[in-house]
Design a binder for these strands. Sequence first.
DNA 1: GTCTATATTGGGATAGAC
DNA 2: GTCTATCCCAATATAGAC
Lengths: 191, 191
Amino acid sequence: MDVALELFAENGVAATPVTAIEAGAGLSAGSGSFYRHFKDKTELLAAVVDREMIRVKKDPTAQVMAAPQDVPPAQALATQLRADLDFLKELLPLMAILMWERSKAPNLARKVQDTMVERGVELGIADLLFRAPAPLVKDDPTAAATVMMSAVVGYFLSVEYFGEPPAGVGPEKFTTMLAKLLTDPNPSSLN
Amino acid sequence: MDVALELFAENGVAATPVTAIEAGAGLSAGSGSFYRHFKDKTELLAAVVDREMIRVKKDPTAQVMAAPQDVPPAQALATQLRADLDFLKELLPLMAILMWERSKAPNLARKVQDTMVERGVELGIADLLFRAPAPLVKDDPTAAATVMMSAVVGYFLSVEYFGEPPAGVGPEKFTTMLAKLLTDPNPSSLN
DNA sequence: GTCTATATTGGGATAGAC
DNA sequence: GTCTATCCCAATATAGAC
């Protein structure tokens, strides 16, 4: 399953021959030994995704970190956002697989949306309100959290996909800027 | 090529049989008629991507809109962000294909990064500085533009991928919030 | 430029010995 | 549980008539 996770994420399920999985698992490629463990590739995929969802759900880095009292809110939030970026790295193989399989297995995408995205936004809301909430955030925490999470995900995908930060803006700069924008305590454009 | 673009984006190149392209183009599936037009599927892929890149580059919605003087900066920026979201919709098939082919054709990803991402951030910077620039933005326009573009891309992908806005936050709310955060003229967390 | 027909291969899956 | 051997099919690609 470890091998399959890697190969699926890298090349997609369809493009990963059973023989390659056998080879990666130390079995002789081309022997049907794979089929003593799983009925077929589809069953393996389901097993891999399930295991990954469970693993991710209990990942400690997914939790909101205890907010230290002695640092300014912007800095505390930036630290949290860095942790979020690291957490997404854990999620990456699963995300890649689901992107590949989206059209074939829409139910899988649905499951992930419910458990990951909505929960992510919820956590983000809690996160934002917990720290000194700026007026804009307080005005519509859900929208603010959505912006925050979208930015993190978008940035993460850019980095992973292209192998380098967009426009040379590293994680440090990125999270700092995003945190500042969100914790700004005095907006005048509310009108 | 239109059919191929659709099918490639939906299912990936490997999972799209030549026969399906033939069928979609009005040819009889299974006849080799395809091969009178392209040497093989790889050549078709290259042609499709090239045509798409050119088409996207001259797309008028990619331009920064003339900023009206009589609306507040936050509102003007929100309008621009809505246009950006629409533009991404144009880009979606190309993005999907490149995501799928990333591992197989890293050079393609590179080409896109140069022409799309960097250009997108550049436009974003111009955009931000052009409108009433908040101190935070002025302080580091590149970082602010990266945050802005990342948020737009992340939000867009969530919507496209899951078929509905995350946490029920629609495009209107999203762009408004993001624009407000960016144009806030009075941040105190710069320190 | 499209068709019918076909050669060929790669990969999914099974049978049965060990 | 793994192997060798094999079946089968789906998909690539070509040949040659029309």
